[in-house]
Design a binder for these strands. Structure first.
Lengths: 240, 240
DNA sequence: GACAACTGGGTACGACGTACGCAACTAGGA
DNA sequence: TCCTAGTTGCGTACGTCGTACCCAGTTGTC
């Protein structure tokens, strides 16, 4: 599991240099295959052996293109990062632009649930990540200090990531236990009922019984919560 | 890696029932050993074999106490969840209480960096998680709908988690590459310099050059950002 | 005292990432 | 044009992992 521990990013290592036979594959092909497998069967299924087999080659051949599996994960993340069409420049309507960013993030996670299973170590500023960063900060560049932009974007992204993570876990749990959302909400699972019966968790009880949010569709939950968060951000911006 | 996939929480499985010989260990002991190893050598080091060896027994003995390693991870998470002293009831000062929650979260992550390497699947509402939840929602119970409380707390927790995650990754990167923060800030690493030299990332450049936040100590960054987020939350609460 | 329920723990299986080595190939310098 | 250094695909092998299965020994209940 542990290795030599380089510190340089995969994007500063050139893909090829002359000489030798023409390589049969490319980083992009390998990355694409890995993503396809992870989408279908989960992150663990995207092993070096399996990826190689899908490409019709041997596991060790992949190491001619990518120094380690961790670097391949970096490539995978960056390459799925743009789902919606992200313009080159912000539109001038910060709210619309941040909504676009948030929707892009959510759709990315929903299409590639294996993102939840990553613990990135290196910062990994790939080209797509940088492009998103430019767009997001450009959108918030409305006369507030750059430090404030950093905080507000961390707040927005932190919220979106957290909510979408929960959404993914929930749908997976539904799928693998074969439950319908309705049965889950009424039965609440034996453990939740057990908790409510102790009477020791009044706030938990209020969430289960009073909250309307959990009864909306995930899509509605997302829009509703996102709008509240954007309202909070609005309060930090100069009034036009 | 894949197993039978139960859907019940570890906390609804009783630890012991009579008959048979008296067990030599306990879930708490095993959990404690696992945390000790993970703190020292990382999450991967806390393998079933290693934990068992530390306890002076065989790997398979652990499965008498815990159905799977995933369940053990649930136990580990819940057992490190309370770092600061969390009172039974909120103090009445929501800002102080949410600050306490955020500080508790940050210290937990700093003491147990392996938390970053987890992708929780099941919801895992352990006793400590529930206690924190009661305190947090109680603190925000100042006359706003429960749905709004949900969103604001997701926003706060999302922000804190995101920032502390970054802090952990950064310090680990510093440690394993043997760099000092000063050298990192000036050299910025060859890759960052390369990016700046392209001139294609003006916002990224502004962050690197203008932002004061990254030059503060992590502690200061955290306090500064947290206060801004709490200001945003204040804007959503009724004025007293 | 019989027996059912449980214990600790050894062995084994099928994964995993990847170090190493080797034959085949290809481009640049002579 | 030929040599040779650099690179290719890829098979083998090692040490790791989680855990299924098995069995002998221990203990509480009847």
């Amino acid at each position: 599991m542990a290795g030599g521990e380089r510190q340089v990013s995969i994007w500063s290592i050139p893909e090829r240099q002359g000489r030798g036979p023409r390589p049969a594959y490319s980083r992009a092909q390998i990355t694409e295959a890995a993503i396809r497998i992870a989408d279908a069967d989960g992150l663990d299924a995207a092993s070096m052996r399996r990826i190689a087999a899908d490409l019709g080659t041997g596991a060790m051949s992949l190491y001619r293109y990518v120094p380690s599996r961790d670097d391949l994960l970096d490539l995978m993340v960056d390459s799925v990062l743009l789902v919606r069409e992200i313009p080159d420049r912000p539109s001038g309507d910060w709210r619309a632009d941040l909504t676009l960013i948030a929707e892009n993030t959510r759709e990315m996670w929903l299409r590639h649930p294996w993102l939840a299973g990553l613990h990135r170590s290196r910062a990994s500023y790939g080209p797509n990540r940088l492009r998103l960063l430019e767009f997001a900060f450009g959108a918030l560049d409305v006369g507030i200090p750059v430090d404030e932009m950093l905080i507000l974007l961390d707040m927005l992204n932190g919220y979106v990531e957290r909510v979408v993570r929960g959404e993914i876990e929930w749908t997976r749990e539904m799928r693998q236990s074969g439950m319908t959302p309705e049965r889950w909400m009424t039965e609440s699972g034996p453990y939740v009922r057990e908790l409510l019966d102790t009477g020791r968790y009044p706030m938990f009880e209020r969430i289960v019984k009073d909250a309307r949010l959990p009864h909306m569709t995930p899509e509605q939950q997302f829009r509703y919560g996102l709008n509240h968060v954007l309202d909070r951000i609005a309060g930090a911006l100069p009034t036009p």
